[in-house]
Write a protein that binds this DNA or RNA. Structure first.
Lengths: 192, 192
DNA sequence: GTCTATAATACGATAGAC
DNA sequence: GTCTATCGTATTATAGAC
């Protein structure tokens, strides 16, 4: 069983993870985090020396859960097309959160890319993780040469649809967009 | 001629405009703005009561320059296809800035949409301005029914390409993406 | 290891002299 | 209108008692 210290640390990471998503990294204060995690004020510094450390821990945590999800999909879903469509499906399933707070990965990168290049480079790992997994599926589908480009195109489509759906608070646009992506994927699969 | 007061105010707006783009709204402090605009510290408050006022002035300024640009295009460019491709062209021309700071309109909306809904609604006007102009061009091209949806799709494509190009610092992706958009537009035009 | 108290700084904003 | 001085608060972070 996890020690009390480990459980407290995990509670801080979970709270920070949520807040960084809902408010953004820079607008989230340590006070916000300790309130949400119900940890005494100055105690935070026992677990994380700086706010940047906290963000890195959050990114690491997201990497782990994402890796788990992707390898789960790889085990339980047989064809590359179905796997790619499973990726599109979480976009559609996450509609309320996406309309409220945008893409957790995209909005974090956009925020940090402005003038926090080192942190942005850490956040970029999240994109790399998806990109490589998606490219693997495209390669298996029959596009080994174009796999990387196709994976980037798929992520670009997703990001664009999410931004516009959020700006206009339009769940229908998200729905039509994901359906259109699926049509594109099915055509790719058909003519592979 | 403009009074000294008006020139000072314009200098503040220009400085804020740049800084909000390069650092983001929330990470830009009044100190940053007065330093950049070379205005004495507390003087800012003579021109703008609050930071939110300053952002609204920046948005208004961007609206004006954008309106000017779009009506200029409408005067000087004859066909809807060429006008739409002119829109795509500024994306390509802005490659260095987009890789550095993202889309001025998109990144501002993404930042504010998290938990500053009123300011985000002001920033949304920038999207509306482009959206309506783009829809007008699609309508003239022969798609009056689908005009709004096509304009949203065009903006979504642009946003997605910019996000991915920035994440991967890849000007080539931006170039290939804009070319692909142009192919799409030319096909729409051909079969209108 | 846990927590309180508080330091040190940066922030948005104000008061009032000129 | 222009500027200096400064307020009150919130921020990240530390020192040190228990």
């Amino acid at each position: 069983m996890a020690t009390k210290s480990e459980r407290t640390q995990q509670r801080i990471i979970d709270a920070a993870n949520q807040l960084f998503y809902r408010k953004g990294y820079n607008r989230t204060s340590f006070t916000d985090v300790v309130d949400e995690a119900e940890v005494p004020r100055g105690n935070i510094y026992y677990y994380f020396k700086t706010k940047e450390d906290m963000l890195r821990a959050v990114i690491k945590h997201r990497m782990e859960t994402t890796r788990l999800m992707l390898s789960e999909w790889e085990k339980s879903i047989k064809t590359p097309l179905d796997r790619l469509e499973r990726f599109v499906q979480i976009m559609y399933d996450s509609t309320p959160a996406l309309l409220r707070s945008g893409c957790p990965m995209g909005s974090l990168n956009v925020e940090l890319a402005k003038d926090q290049p080192e942190l942005k480079n850490d956040a970029k790992q999240l994109f790399d993780l998806f990109q490589q997994w998606l490219a693997k599926q495209f390669a298996q589908m029959g596009y080994p040469e174009e796999a990387r480009e196709l994976s980037l195109e798929l992520m670009a489509r997703g990001q664009g649809i999410i931004v516009i759906a959020q700006v206009y608070q339009d769940p229908g646009f998200l729905e039509r967009g994901t359906k259109e992506i699926n049509r594109w994927l099915e055509n790719l699969d058909r003519y592979a």
